[in-house]
Nucleic acid binder design. Structure first.
Length: 323
RNA sequence: GGUGGGGUGGCCGAGUGGCUAAUGGCAGCAGACUGUAAAUCUGCCGGGCUCUGCCCUACGUAGGUUCGAAUCCUACCCCCACCA
């Protein structure tokens, strides 16, 4: 049995990753490592479509509810912390499965980022204040000058390139080439897909469902804690539209439609990522089929690949750790 | 019924005689992506082709003026506002 080999279930939002993971947990003693940059933030449950209380009490999820909405989480922190989760899961005699839709987080755990040099927090803060005043065009030009390898990509990426170059003394692309980190796992991918119209349909019904379940109220409560609209946790599809409404920047009636459109665009970007950025062992599954069926197929392959113990062990293992 | 404003590419919306298949924006499609990534960017976007160019169809409808019209004129249809 290869302890490093880990299945990674990815796919666009609303495709049913959680359902498949839950069904899979019925067949194999596993815990979930969530690779999702939005579900890390506490109290933003509806807007980020977190797995529910029932799901999480049945199957432990790691990487959910681990940061405050005002706190900056990152792919780097995820790369670091996920190693601990993986070790813990194995320590409990369970198997980890990575489930998530954030391509960069999946990359962080499956390929490793680069070893970032220490960047002094206060210098970084000061620099951020400075770069915040520059126009995007100036920032991009500056990034290109500091890092000849800078390939463009707008404000956010230019800011990052400038920061690394100035604070570490070496260009970002240099670090990326030279300071390769180890991957935490040896991944084999299960990519969940469905025909576009079906994905769109699921997204549309989920958007209105979010409103019905209290998305606006949830976001209002977080805003009431004193977070600014630009807080890290509030910068996501759905949550953003709710903030706009609560700040009087859009009608309430326009919220569900706006969320649907933004989510569709996000799902499209995710699919582009999984189509082109994920390499190695990649298995694409049609997610219009029932999750149980998909889980059974994944479990069969998993057992064959990694000599996973049979389901009987699972039942006892689960009752032992039952919380 | 009267007066005024308006009908532009899937939608919104510029354009008031040639440089216009028609500025922008939205939506859509394709792509990029190494620590803010549900982010941030890039390309395409009437149709067809023998595709650094050519052809066709397009600015409510039908005519007209003009070498040339989305842009001017006439009639008609529809929408909105106000007055009745």
């Amino acid at each position: 049995m290869d302890a490093d080999s880990v299945p990674v279930i990815v796919g666009p939002t609303a495709i049913g990753k959680t359902a498949v993971a839950m069904a899979l947990a019925e067949l194999i003693p596993l815990e979930v490592v969530s690779a999702d940059s939005r579900q890390v933030y506490r109290r933003l449950d509806i807007g980020t479509a977190k797995p529910g209380r029932r799901e999480r009490s049945r199957v432990p999820h790691h990487g959910v509810d681990i940061a405050e909405p005002g706190e900056r989480y990152s792919a780097g922190r995820f790369a670091l912390e996920s190693q601990q989760w993986l070790a813990d899961i194995r320590g409990r005699g369970k198997l980890p499965v990575v489930v998530g839709g954030t391509g960069l987080y999946v990359r962080a755990i499956a390929d490793g980022l680069f070893l970032e040099p220490p960047l002094e927090a206060d210098r970084r803060q000061a620099l951020e204040t400075w770069t915040g005043r520059l126009t995007t065009a100036d920032l991009v030009r500056w990034a290109g000058r500091l890092d000849p390898g800078f390939a463009g990509g707008g404000r956010q990426r230019a800011t990052r390139a400038v920061e690394v170059a100035l604070l570490s003394g070496y260009p970002l692309t240099w670090w990326q080439q030279v300071a390769r980190a180890e991957a935490a796992i040896r991944p084999w991918y299960v990519v969940l897909t469905a025909p576009r119209p079906i994905i769109h349909q699921r997204i549309a019904s989920r958007s209105s469902e979010m409103i019905r379940r209290g998305l606006i109220e949830e976001v209002a409560a977080v805003l009431a804690e004193g977070h600014l609209a630009g807080a890290p946790g509030l910068d996501g599809v759905g949550v953003r539209e709710a903030v706009e409404y609560l700040h009087g920047q859009r009608d309430r009636d326009s919220v569900p439609e706006a969320i649907t459109i933004a989510t569709r665009q996000y799902a499209k970007r995710q699919q582009t990522w999984f189509r082109h950025q994920v390499t190695g062992t990649v298995w694409t599954l049609d997610a219009t089929r029932p999750p149980e069926q998909l889980a059974a197929e994944i479990a069969a392959v998993w057992r064959q690949r990694d000599q996973v113990p049979p389901a009987a062990d699972h039942l006892s293992a689960r009752s032992e750790s039952g919380t």
